[in-house]
């Protein structure tokens, strides 16, 4: 009796463990089954590199959206990563213990704020500022990039900080003993040693930025053209899905799902980079 019970529980634990496999398989199957035929129908090059997105007249080119996603992510990284790394340096090498007790929860809180609140904040604060500075509607590539830069800050800070803390203290002390200043020891001895952790932080930040939807949709303007300048409006792959899924039907809907497939492939590549990096570290 006891043995049977043990066996049943063992099986139950095993089944639960396999749920995540099932989930990934289901996601892949459903997305590919609905997305791939659409890509076939539209034509791979027409879909991926077509510059015209006009579902009403049968044009399904998502190239502007791919460019939009990449550019927004790029700007977010340019803004968020340096600030994030510097802030992580502050937390691990400058921050007095008493202040740390306040800063650490603050960064956690920054990570916990829902993206819709960030988006709304961008809409009511950053958009008007951009309008004032550059004219136009204020909703642009730059606006979305800045907002995403702020949003990826906590991800970058947390990952960088923990990798900085993992660097042996002797690196820092050795540099100090050789006569380097505190800053030189931190930036030229400890920081390079945390290189792989920082790279991981950047990849995680990129993943968060490229997948972000609700914040971007409110501040990016959502025009389906390749942006001419940094202040023109853009649409990302994520916002394309949310904006049109509600009323789309037929091939249009499948094309949107195919957009999701492309996004999924992007994320998979990013994940692969991340796990390759992790494996190398181990």
């Amino acid at each position: 009796m006891q043995k049977v019970k043990e066996g049943i529980m063992h099986a139950l634990f095993l089944i639960c463990a396999c749920v995540s496999i099932l989930a990934v398989v289901l996601i892949c199957v459903y997305l590919l089954a609905s997305g791939v035929p659409a890509i076939g129908e539209i034509g791979v090059t027409d879909f991926l590199f077509g510059t015209k997105w006009k579902p009403s007249s049968g044009y399904y080119g998502i190239f502007p959206m791919i460019i939009g996603s990449i550019l927004v992510t790029g700007i977010a990284v340019v803004i968020g990563v340096p600030i994030g790394i510097l802030c992580a340096v502050f937390m691990s090498h400058y921050c007095p213990k008493k202040l740390y007790r306040f800063v650490k929860p603050a960064i956690n809180l920054l990570a916990g704020i829902p993206s819709i609140v960030y988006g709304f904040f961008g809409l009511v604060v950053i958009v008007p500022i951009m309008k004032e500075l550059f004219g136009g509607s204020g909703k642009s590539l730059l606006t979305a990039g800045i907002l995403l830069g702020i949003m990826i800050l906590p991800t970058v800070i947390k990952t960088t900080e923990s990798s900085l803390n993992a660097v042996p203290k002797s690196y820092y002390e050795g540099a100090l003993a050789l006569g380097a200043t505190h800053e030189r020891s931190v930036f030229f001895a400890s920081l390079p040693a945390a290189k792989s952790g920082i790279l991981a932080a950047i990849i995680l930040g990129v993943g968060r930025a490229i997948g972000e939807t609700m914040a971007v949709i409110l501040v990016a303007g959502n025009q389906t053209v390749i942006p001419k300048s940094i202040t023109s409006g853009i649409r990302t792959m994520t916002s394309n899905i949310v904006m049109e899924m509600g009323y789309a039907g037929g091939l249009h809907r499948e094309a949107l799902i195919a957009t999701g497939v492309v996004l999924f492939v992007f994320i998979l590549i990013i994940n692969l980079c991340f796990s390759a990096l992790k494996r190398r570290k181990d």
């Binding site: 996601i27 994520t238 999924f264």
Partner: peptide, 13 residues
């Protein structure tokens, strides 16, 4: 993989 998938892809699925 599951933890890296953006929420909009979950939504689509």
């Amino acid at each position: 993989t599951l933890s890296g998938i953006p929420s909009i892809v979950f939504g689509l699925f």
